[in-house]
């Protein structure tokens, strides 16, 4: 959605919902990350709106961060599937596509190819955002095949290590020993090695992290999107706890995410040489633009 597309005719403005008008006037469309990005959330109207995810849900926080980090929200489409995350992803001013359970990477394959044919001069960003069940269990074959085919879009897995939305059943990503519904004696099997699978299947940029550091987490999201534009499939495996099914008091959710940084979600970043080239180039451009802007501001002040 471009700003032009969402801007109402002046005389209709007073009839439209307040949230909508605020989004047009104070939202991030057409702005830079310095003006409306993760570093100044709370000072502009965010793309994400009120959502029905649980109080203190770390997944909701991370989804909020994803939307604030998008390099070009007006040219982005998200795809998702059943699971908690879709409750918030669908409440954002970015087109969201929702199909059958686990088919998000299959749909994104077709969509990203179609965009390249239909808009050869435009950069459209396609991102799938789904739970661990949607990405690694029921959607597993579609996830893997999209990677093996080298489809150019970004896959983000919201790993809460459980089927949160359906009441807490064990998933392939639950850690061994976790006591969950369908695993009353503790899970018998190991947590699936998602990032190793991604590497074997040909992802060109892969990160595993517990997103506690906003700057770092935002940088990873942007890198994954930039690389997918030019090189190949990219994958972010993020820890987004379920405080309900893992009985984490909400005031301890952040502490738990920090503890995971030293445990199952130690930071891992992999990139191919071609991916590194893209990252180095774009980040150098961003830095130069930032410095140029600072120079202009300094000149104006003088």
């Amino acid at each position: 959605m471009s700003l032009k597309y969402v801007t109402p005719v002046a005389m209709f403005k007073k009839y439209l919902p307040k949230d909508y008008v605020e989004l047009v006037d104070f939202g991030p469309f057409g702005k830079t990350q310095d003006e409306a990005g993760p570093g100044n959330m709370g000072q502009f109207k965010e793309l994400m709106e009120e959502h029905p995810m649980c109080s203190g849900c770390w997944m909701a926080y991370y989804i909020r961060l994803i939307f604030a980090s998008l390099p070009c929200p007006e040219e982005t489409v998200t795809l998702g599937t059943a699971g908690c995350g879709r409750l918030a992803i669908s409440q954002a001013a970015v087109p969201f596509i929702y199909g059958n359970y686990g088919d998000q990477n299959a749909m994104a394959s077709g969509l990203s190819r179609a965009f390249r044919l239909r808009f050869p001069d435009k950069q459209k960003d396609v991102i799938t955002i789904a739970g661990d069940g949607g990405t690694m269990d029921i959607g597993f074959s579609m996830t893997m095949h999209s990677w093996i085919r080298g489809e150019r879009f970004t896959t983000i897995m919201l790993d809460n290590e459980v089927y949160g939305n359906t009441g807490g059943q064990e998933s392939g990503m639950s850690p061994k020993g976790a006591v969950l519904k369908m695993a009353p004696g503790g899970k018998n099997f190991e947590k699936m090695p998602a990032t190793a699978l991604a590497k074997a299947a040909g992802c060109v940029y892969i990160v595993k992290m517990s997103p506690t550091n906003i700057k770092k987490a935002a940088k990873v999201i942007r890198r994954a999107i930039f690389v997918a534009r030019e090189v190949g499939p990219t994958f972010i495996h993020a820890y987004t706890s379920c405080n309900i099914e893992y009985s984490i008091p909400t005031e301890e959710v952040f502490a738990d995410a920090r503890a995971q940084e030293k445990d199952r979600f130690q930071f891992e970043e992999y990139m191919t040489d071609a991916a590194k080239e893209v990252i180095d180039r774009i980040e150098a451009e961003e830095k130069a633009a930032h410095r140029a802007k600072k120079g202009i501001v300094a000149e104006e002040v003088n």
Partner: peptide, 27 residues
């Protein structure tokens, strides 16, 4: 975890809460 809820007022240099949106998680 809620968008447009815990806001920052640049002029007053302070955070503030939209109480109708806060879910009380204490994060």
């Amino acid at each position: 975890p809620e968008a447009n809820t815990l806001m920052f007022d640049k002029v007053g240099n302070t955070s503030w809460v939209d109480e109708d949106r806060c879910k009380g998680c204490a994060l």
